[in-house]
Design a protein around this nucleic acid. Structure first.
Lengths: 256, 256
DNA sequence: CCGGTTAAGTGTGAAAAACACACGATCAAT
DNA sequence: ATTGATCGTGTGTTTTTCACACTTAACCGG
């Protein structure tokens, strides 16, 4: 945006001081040096859907102490990357998955949240379709899908992170037709409804649901049918990303 | 929650390693040492309302270079405080205001967002009633209220922060009767409506607005009238925090 | 090949919420 | 006493939401 933004924080901290051009750099160094630095972690709440229910990935700690304790996957942000990149890297490193929908959730910063060292953690949540994104790699010997309702106690403040992520996912689901990230490319209405039911944790009426979605006009009904699911077979649908994006720009609302 | 959470990140980073109980601490130190630390800043978007329109506080940088550039108020988080505390401290230091509604907004982390040094900034937004919270102190020689629509270009990514804060405020206003923070304790319906109109940036119908709020049942009409505002005088209302909190727990929705 | 079984697809009417809309009341100032 | 400014109020219309039950297609087994 601007060219020289060097004294942003300096200006605020010492508004009376008027440094000369000759020593900007030193002053900044001096100033910054007095400030504390902290470790910045990212933790990922990875939601998945597998035709039945909403799940999340947890990793089991395999060593003492705390053997048997579960945790979100996480890692530290490096100096040469931003938080989004760190979250994507952590996800890829630990699951082999890339190009996944991720969204920043909240920064957790309680002083004693990590007894090891002062760490601030920024939680991210990710959405993936379980079936079409099988994990690869040994890292995940310890990782496991948990049905949301059966998630165990987690270390640190990870349970709070999960709760907040669920709340966010729920709000997203109710206000915009998110959730396609959680389904395969082609899906049936039944699957979509099951997804919404498990996100919102309540039963929805079949007809009202389909009507609502039809009126949103972001689905394309294909000529194919999924014959495995019923004698009669169920139409497959595809998400119309273009129409969706156009509607997002127009700022459409959506209520379930 | 649990007692010994020490190896949370270690476990994830090196799942194959199984440290002995005797050297937990050293291993953790070694591990943590290899990770980068960064400066963590907080920047505050301070919204205010003064009977007419929505404003925000900006501080003018008074020294070269960048003289005349505006910025949000901000500062760095210290090791012995969390982000909420840091935000409250920054707000109090620079404006003398304490006990103000604040909410974490988003963490900004682009590598080059602050050319001075690698800094991640967590934005907070605050809501205050301009009239009953006059600034004190010299610090604010450089601070100034700006009507939202007339806010200037800001340093770094501060404009993006403001945009996001406005979006959040708008969503809040539409889904829960927030905004009482922005009004004096007693207020007229007209003021409340003017506030909502300036948050949502559109005209609302007087009768529908009052009906909507009446049906929410979180306002108490006082016997007093504000006679300055019209010949006839306008009823004063008070926010019923108890009822409101009860409703929030029941998870009420609200749409404007 | 025919009847039985299973899940899919489909539309309407009632209730609730949202919206548009206009005029009389009050009091101060002149 | 008249004027002017602004407050306060209620109803009818439209839109959205919700509840609800039967027919259809295809496979399966006898």
């Amino acid at each position: 945006m601007q060219s020289c933004k060097f004294f942003g924080y300096l200006a605020r901290a010492a508004p009376g001081v008027r440094p000369q051009l000759t020593n900007h750099y030193n002053m900044a160094l001096t100033y910054y040096k007095t400030e504390d630095q902290v470790l910045l972690a990212v933790d990922c709440i990875i939601f998945g859907f597998d035709e039945e229910e909403l799940k999340l990935v947890l990793v089991k700690r395999s060593m003492e102490p705390e053997r048997g304790k579960w945790s979100l996957i996480g890692g530290f942000m490096k100096k040469d990357e931003d938080l989004d990149q760190a979250a994507a890297r952590v996800l890829e490193t630990l699951t082999g998955l890339s190009d996944i929908y991720m969204e920043q959730l909240y920064a957790y910063s309680k002083v004693d949240r990590d007894p090891g060292q002062r760490t601030v953690s920024v939680a991210y949540f990710a959405l993936i379709d379980v079936a079409s994104h099988q994990f690869e790699g040994v890292q995940l010997e310890t990782a496991q899908w948990f049905p949301l309702s059966q998630a165990p106690h987690l270390i640190f403040d990870h349970n709070a992170m999960v709760e907040k992520a669920v709340a966010r996912l729920r709000r997203r689901a109710m206000t915009m037709p998110i959730g396609f990230e959680l389904l395969p490319e082609k899906f049936t209405m039944r699957q979509l409804q099951a997804l919404y039911e498990s996100i919102l944790d309540k039963k929805l009426d079949k007809r009202n649901f389909i009507n609502k979605f039809k009126s949103l006009d972001v689905l394309i009904r294909l000529d194919e049918k999924d014959m495995t699911v019923a004698r009669k077979g169920a139409y497959l649908y595809r998400f119309d990303k273009e129409k969706y994006d156009r509607k997002v720009e127009e700022g459409f609302s959506f209520k379930l």
